[in-house]
Design a protein around this nucleic acid. Structure first.
Lengths: 193, 193
DNA sequence: GAGGGCACTGCCCATAAGTACAGGTCCTCT
DNA sequence: AGAGGACCTGTACTTATGGGCAGTGCCCTC
């Protein structure tokens, strides 16, 4: 009997998962929570945690490492950044909302026995090494998105305008953008900002 | 007995809605579909259509007007543009995914009797008049997001560079941006692109 | 028929952006 | 010790951007 704990702030999603998993043999829903804090506080003994990344309060990404049971992420977006951080944090599975129920059930089995499961749409991103932005570059990108000029960025980060330009150029190279407008668009699309 | 048709491409969401509504008195789920085409083709007699906006094939926004029964939109994003277009297309209700089951049930009742229901998070946006971009401006904004210079935009739209600049400036004014990077960020945040 | 919104265009100008060259210091991992 | 990465800086250059001022024409509504 595989014990499942569900952590998702969407009532409809919780309902759907419970309904689907209750029907299935060998699986038992041991707890359903709307936030990571509740789930962690309940200290339920589970074999698999199904965890949404967008949660009120403690975000799913930060919660992953706090669970002792293997975590199967089930979330709406599969952005490079989310996936990277979730897997780095120790998630054993990554599913996108909208996945067929069969896939969800298979993922639970796989994760429960200690293996890893990735949604096919996620796998594509994982096998292709991405150009991750450095901490500084993300900072600069954030300022660019807010409409700051290189001079303003320089002032805020206490560096010279030349260095600000340098970071901006690095961002272009990594994102494959030709100018700030496109960089912001790409970043938004990848949910980097 | 209120007859409901559910149109959503997420299996988990479909499952959740069916489970929740089956429990409720006076409500009957008369059909569940994964796309607008299927739902329209089935010609089920319904009192309320629960419709997701992000659908494969025919998008939810375009599908709204094609249903004869009142449509209750249930979607993940509540962006100004989506809301505007959905309401213009004739949606009678607008709920965000993540809404409590009670709200969903209330919305169904309200919509079924011909009134309108808005998610509280949506209402805020509706009562505040927004600066909507013109068709041309959205076109220009799209090109700006793709990294095009004013000259390139001019060429692609067969106008002069001066006119491209003019549109870009109008976009800045309406969005409250100071430059293209910020405009793209704001547009992305409002899901205008 | 007089607005009002939208689309379009001209000239001019100061500043910002983006890129080319070339270099430097840290820190970490091997 | 050496390699690689992130981070930082300089000079010099071309081009793009954003905005001011001024004006035209179209279409739709009141």
């Amino acid at each position: 009997m595989t014990k499942i704990v569900i952590v998702d702030d969407h009532p409809v999603v919780r309902e759907g998962l419970v309904a689907a998993l209750d029907r299935k043999n060998g699986v038992e829903v041991a707890g359903v929570f709307g936030s990571a804090e509740e789930a962690l506080g309940a200290r339920v003994n589970a074999d698999v945690i199904i965890l949404d990344l967008e949660l009120p309060g403690l975000g799913g990404l930060d919660a992953i490492a706090k669970f002792s049971a293997p975590v199967l992420v089930l979330t709406a977006y599969g952005t490079d950044e989310d996936i990277d951080r979730a897997l780095e944090a120790g998630a054993k599975g990554y599913l996108l909302k909208g996945a067929p129920l069969d896939d969800i059930e298979r993922a639970i089995e796989v994760v429960a026995r200690g293996d890893a499961y990735l949604d096919p749409r996620v796998t594509t991103r994982v096998i292709r090494p991405r150009q991750r932005l450095s901490e500084r570059e993300r900072e600069v990108l954030r300022l660019v998105s807010a409409g700051n000029s290189n001079k303003e960025i320089a002032k805020k980060l206490r560096i010279t305008e030349r260095t600000a330009k340098f970071h901006v150029t690095s961002i272009f190279n990594k994102l494959g953008a030709e100018n700030r407008a496109q960089a912001v668009a790409i970043a938004a699309e990848k949910h980097l900002i």
